[in-house]
Write a protein that binds this DNA or RNA. Sequence first.
DNA 1: GAGTGGTCTAGACCACGCT
DNA 2: GCGTGGTCTAGACCACTCA
Lengths: 253, 253
Amino acid sequence: MGTTQLESVQEPKYWHLKTVLNDALDSEFEVGEILPNERDLAARFGVARATLRQALEQLELEGRLQRRRGVGTTVAPPRIGVAVGPSANTWPGAGRDAWTTIGCAEAVAPAAVAALLGTAADEAVHTVRRERTVQGQPVATELLYVPPASVPGLPGLLTPAEHAPAVLRELHTLELESEDRAVELGSARAEDAKLLDRLPGAPVLVVTTRYVSGGRVAAASVATYRADTCRLTFGDSGALEVTHHEPESRQAS
Amino acid sequence: MGTTQLESVQEPKYWHLKTVLNDALDSEFEVGEILPNERDLAARFGVARATLRQALEQLELEGRLQRRRGVGTTVAPPRIGVAVGPSANTWPGAGRDAWTTIGCAEAVAPAAVAALLGTAADEAVHTVRRERTVQGQPVATELLYVPPASVPGLPGLLTPAEHAPAVLRELHTLELESEDRAVELGSARAEDAKLLDRLPGAPVLVVTTRYVSGGRVAAASVATYRADTCRLTFGDSGALEVTHHEPESRQAS
DNA sequence: GAGTGGTCTAGACCACGCT
DNA sequence: GCGTGGTCTAGACCACTCA
């Protein structure tokens, strides 16, 4: 056999494949177009399906592809820029904030959240589940945790339908001093995955927010954004920039 | 065979494995401790190595494990909170900003960056490579792009060693109006991966920042943070909170 | 029911870090 | 040189969507 492939030395096949596919996506496919199925693609490139899948997985992680069981693999549109952390500090649910409330329960928060709130680990807190959709597609789900101490004026008897609005209303009577946020990578738990229309384990960006009022942490939220379709934008101004993905950039030593 | 496993129906093995391992990590292992190797673990759980690896990959993605070729799999410490976007707007390299400059070159920026800067696609810009380490470990690399128009006072003849400091110094003479930032998931390119001490393709959080001065975008940067070890914190106040990972949280319908 | 992606197996070999 | 994780193969079956 001749050594025809000088360039491919020491580079994993799936990595090379990924590059090739990435370029092909730019030049030969339209957004939304469906690709040949995995078995055909693997055969075409002369690799095992598992190897091809490794390349596809990476491209999906980077938001270039979208795969759906029973349907196929399609070219993904550019990521959606979703604003996180508006210019003015506002309480969740105040004004027009792009979230829709799904429900509310009173439950013991996970230990991590209790630490964030500074409450006892076994104390029940109001837990509001919300969802955020952009262009008709779900991009995030959130759990907002409000300790009873933050909403002392809350009426005692509430129907499930009244619960969430009442908690938010009470919250808005407080003065919001500041918010801090953290962003980290996570994988979708079963429940979040269902709301986000993904499989469990899908990569998500977890945004943890502490709402501070009167020197105390008055509420905290854990929001889960689809990492494949979203770009989180901070900063005040118009955030809807173009996105894309560069193969490899020139270097600065 | 008796149907001993009622709970495991319809749940992928790797998902169940992940849960089991996650719990074991909490109860039976110390941070930094090395796990049995993959072949042993797979045998112990009665699954193929590929299946075990699928579970390990997820746990690594979530920052619970750290795997190193030739060494082994260790229990990862909690993610490091790294501050992004300080309270006061500051130029890169001003004051004490946790970054160290590696080098600088004049090169054509990738198309995406040119769009961000509003420069021509084929215009050369100053490209400063920087690195950020926390507790001795590299957590991020950055490319800072500065169009020549933003630093008109830059001397003509510069040695490589003088280049980066000179660009930053010139930049600091401008007044910074605002910054916007975006965060998205990406995978490390070969070059970034090397600086971050990871394999190419490792998950990273890509932070894109636009620095606005005089109504124009005076500079832009693309910073690449290790997604496995970092938690990006925004907001002004003390950000070094505890992190951990909850199995599954109670629900709010 | 046909076709898709998702899971799983039981092997093999390779690249790397140590010692 | 040995042990580790990383890559790759050639199969199989399952879960899902859609006509």
